[in-house]
Amino acid sequence: MLIDHVPGEDCYDADAAERAAAAVVHHTIQVATVPAVDRLVAAGVPDLRGPALARWTRSMLAPHHADGQLAGLEARLDEVAGCGLPDTLVHGDLHPGNIRADGQRHTIIDWGDSFVGHPAFDILRLTERVPTETADALVAQWCARWRAGVPGCRPERAVALLRPVAWLRLAAVYAMFLAGIEPSERIYHQKDVPNNLAKAAAETG
């Protein structure tokens, strides 16, 4: 009610081309916010860079007996840092329903889950629930953009390392949500944490 209406339609049924176009727009936003991450954190955007992400994830999942899935998290994030991509503004929930298109432009909406952290989390979210070939192509395009802008970085390796971490982060988001909702609502979301922990375990192998 406090912001102008964004023209267009939500892209819940976005095809590969629509997702690819939105990813280009989002990349521009992430590149533009790289120099501003410290200011964003000072303004109140959650800081989930590296060790802070590990601490927050462990804290949120402490009641959910996730020690097995969390094993080696810090070492994995250290390796991610070595891949050379910069931290930036992460949308945090970049599924097609949070993209609006009007035939001329794509607008990223609903930044309520945003944080400062690794940019790969958003491309991983955007490529959920699509055929493997489509997801691979979108990730490859994302990697090419970052390699062009940050010579010497290793985006493919960063994505591979963060696949299980992305599910852990989502499990932690749901754990935080469960901790704050009314008891009568918990029945509708009780499976969200274990389901995402299972996906994290499957990605870790």
Rank of each mutant, 00 (worst) to 15 (best):
H26V: 06
G72A: 01
T28K: 10
P46D: 05
L77G: 09
A54P: 02
A43I: 03
L48T: 06
T33P: 01
Q69H: 04
V24P: 00
W56C: 10
P35E: 01
V34Y: 00
A21S: 14
R58L: 04
Q30T: 06
A22S: 12
Q30V: 04
L70W: 01
V34C: 03
D47F: 01
L77I: 11
H65G: 08
E79Q: 11
L77W: 02
A43K: 09
A62F: 01
G50K: 10
G82N: 08
V25T: 15
V45M: 11
L40F: 09
I29W: 13
T33A: 12
A54C: 12
T57V: 15
V41R: 02
L40K: 09
D67C: 00
R55M: 12
A20S: 13
L61D: 06
G50R: 13
A42C: 06
A62Q: 10
L85W: 03
A75Q: 13
A36E: 11
A42L: 10
L53A: 12
D38G: 07
M60R: 15
E79K: 02
Q69W: 03
V80P: 04
G50Q: 11
M60K: 15
D47C: 00
A22H: 06
L70T: 09
L61M: 07
R58V: 08
A36W: 04
V41S: 07
P35F: 00
D47I: 03
S59L: 14
A71Y: 02
G68S: 10
A22C: 11
A43H: 10
L85K: 05
A62R: 13
H64I: 01
A66F: 04
D67N: 07
V45H: 08
D78Q: 11
G72Q: 09
V37F: 09
Q69Y: 00
P35T: 02
A23Y: 06
V41I: 15
P51T: 14
L61K: 03
E74M: 05
D47G: 05
G82T: 06
Q30D: 07
G50D: 15
G82C: 00
H64A: 09
A21R: 15
R76Y: 03
L61V: 01
A75W: 00
T28I: 11
A20N: 03
P51N: 14
L40V: 09
V45S: 10
T33D: 04
E74D: 13
A71Q: 08
G84S: 03
D67R: 07
A23C: 08
L73Y: 08
R76M: 05
V41Q: 07
H65F: 08
V45A: 10
V45D: 12
A42T: 10
V45K: 07
P35D: 08
G82Y: 02
P63T: 04
V80N: 09
T28E: 15
D47Q: 05
A43V: 02
G72K: 01
L70P: 02
L85T: 06
C83E: 03
G44E: 14
P63H: 02
D78M: 07
